[in-house]
Write a protein that binds this DNA or RNA. Structure first.
Lengths: 231, 231
DNA sequence: TAAAAAAAATGATTTATGTCATTTTTGGTG
DNA sequence: CACCAAAAATGACATAAATCATTTTTTTTA
C-alpha cells in the first residue's frame, strides 16, 4: 500500500550520479574544467556544516556519513557510498552553506564540482535540472522514512535496520566485515553505545547473527527482518 | 555558525509559490487550463499516502498537515499554510504516488495542477526547474532541523517550539486562537496527549503562557524561547 | 436543554533506554 | 613482547515519558 519506503531507518542513498549523462559535450567539458579530485583518509572531514559551499561533492570512492550537529549533539542523516552527490541542498543560492557535515568512514575520494558551474548548467539544461529534482525527491522520501523509523521504532528495530541495510545495500552480502565501531553504530541507529552492545549481544545470543572478529554474518534473516519491521 | 535551522522542530514551510512568476504566458495558460480548484472542509483528506499522484497541490487557502503513517502510527512531517506547493517529491516519475497524506486542519482550498503538465514545464523551463530545486532544498533543510529537534530535544523544548512556531509563523501574533486540540498538538510535537496536557499546565502555572478558552497568549517569550532552544 | 460524545485533566504505574562506574578484551606500537 | 589506549562488555541505577484508568469539563447534537 505504498508503505514500503517506511520500513528501514538506514538511509543509504541509491541515487547514483547518472545525471551527467544528460550533459552536452560542452557542458561536460565545463564541469571537468571546474572540478578537482580529492582523497580523504578514514575519519577526515569532507565538508563542515555551516561552512561556505563552494562545490557539489561527487563521491567517487568510499563511504561517508552525513550528519548535523550543534555544540554538543550529533544526528546522522544518512550514509552514502560511491556514486552519490553531496551538497545539493546548498544549490539554493540564499543558503549557500553546507547544511550538514560530511566525514569519511573509510578512505574515500570525491570530485568537487564548482557550485556556480553546477547552478549555471541547471539553469540552462532543464533535463539535467529535472534529474536533480528526481535525486532531491528521492532523498527527501528516504529521509521521511528514516525520520518515521526513528520516531516509531524502538531500539531493537532500528539496529536490525542498520544491520540489514549494511548487508543489503553497502556490502551486498549476508556476511561482511563490519568496519563501524559500536559507537558509530550507535550514532547511526540513534541510541547509546551501551544499548548497541546489549542488543548486539542479544542478537548473537538468540542466533540471529554471528560475529567472528570483525566479520558479521546474518543467520536468521527473516527474524531480523521481522524485528526491523517492528521489534 | 550555520546552526540556526536547527532550533525549531515545528516545520512550517515558508516557500511561497513565487515560482509561477517564472512561467511564460503560454506556460501559465497551459497550467491554468489543466488545473482545478477544490475546497476542503476541516478534517478532510486532501491526499492519501500511497495513492497515485495525478497532480501537484498548490494550497491557496487554509492550513494543512502533512504526515506519514503505517497501519498503526502517524508522524506529522510539517504543517503548511496558504502559498505552499504539496507533492513535489512525486514529480520523480518512477515514484508517482504521494509519499505522505495531507489533511486539512481548517477549511482550506487548493489548486490541483496536472502533474504531467508540471513535469513538462520543468523539462522545458530550466529557470522554473531551478526554482523548484530551491523549494525542495529549503524543505529538505527544514526537515533536517525538525528531525534533529525531535531526536535531541526533550518534550518541553519540542512543545515550546510548536507554540512559538504557531505564534510566529502561522498566526503572526503573540495572542492567537489555538484551533488545534491537545491530541493534535501531541502529534505535532511527537509525544503523548497526556504529556502535552501536563506540559501546557506547567507552562501556564509558571506564567509562560496564558489560556483563555481557545485563546493562547505568550507572556514570557524569552523564557519560552530558552526552553525551545533546549529545555 | 438534556443527553451523549469528545476533549481535557489527573494520578498511579510501567518501561525503554540513557547514564555512570567499572572491568575485560582487543589492537596497535615502540 | 609488553605496554598503552581504545573499544567492548557488564551491572547498577536514574529518568523521561508512555500507558492506563478514572474523573471532570467542554462541546456537540438530537
Amino acid at each position: 500500500m505504498g508503505n514500503n519506503f517506511l520500513h528501514n531507518s538506514c538511509t543509504v542513498s541509491q541515487t547514483q550520479t547518472k545525471c551527467f549523462d544528460l550533459l552536452s559535450a560542452e557542458e561536460m567539458q565545463e564541469v571537468e574544467e571546474n572540478l578537482v579530485e580529492v582523497s580523504y583518509k578514514k575519519g577526515e572531514t569532507i565538508a563542515k556544516q555551516g561552512s561556505f559551499a563552494a562545490y557539489i561533492i561527487c563521491l567517487s570512492k568510499g563511504l561517508v556519513r552525513i550528519y548535523i550537529e550543534n555544540f554538543k549533539e550529533t544526528l546522522i542523516l544518512k550514509i552514502l557510498s560511491a556514486g552519490n552527490l553531496i551538497g545539493l541542498p546548498s544549490l539554493f543560492e540564499e543558503n549557500s552553506v553546507f547544511p550538514y557535515s560530511v566525514i569519511a568512514y573509510e578512505d574515500s575520494s570525491a570530485k568537487l564540482i564548482d557550485i556556480n558551474v553546477f547552478r549555471k548548467i541547471i539553469k540552462n539544461n532543464a533535463k539535467f535540472a529535472f534529474k536533480i529534482i528526481e535525486i532531491l525527491s528521492a532523498n527527501t522520501i528516504q529521509l521521511y522514512g528514516r525520520f518515521f523509523c526513528f520516531e516509531k521504532k524502538q531500539s531493537y528495530g532500528r539496529l536490525a535496520d542498520i544491520i540489514l541495510c549494511l548487508s543489503g545495500f553497502i556490502y551486498k552480502s549476508e556476511k561482511f566485515d563490519l568496519l563501524l565501531s559500536r559507537k558509530e553504530l550507535a550514532e547511526l541507529a540513534g541510541m547509546s553505545t551501551e544499548s548497541v552492545i546489549r542488543i548486539m549481544k542479544k542478537f548473537k545470543d538468540e542466533g540471529l547473527i554471528s560475529e567472528n572478529g570483525k566479520t558479521v554474518t546474518i543467520i536468521k534473516y527473516d527474524l531480523l527482518s521481522k524485528i526491523s519491521q517492528h521489534g
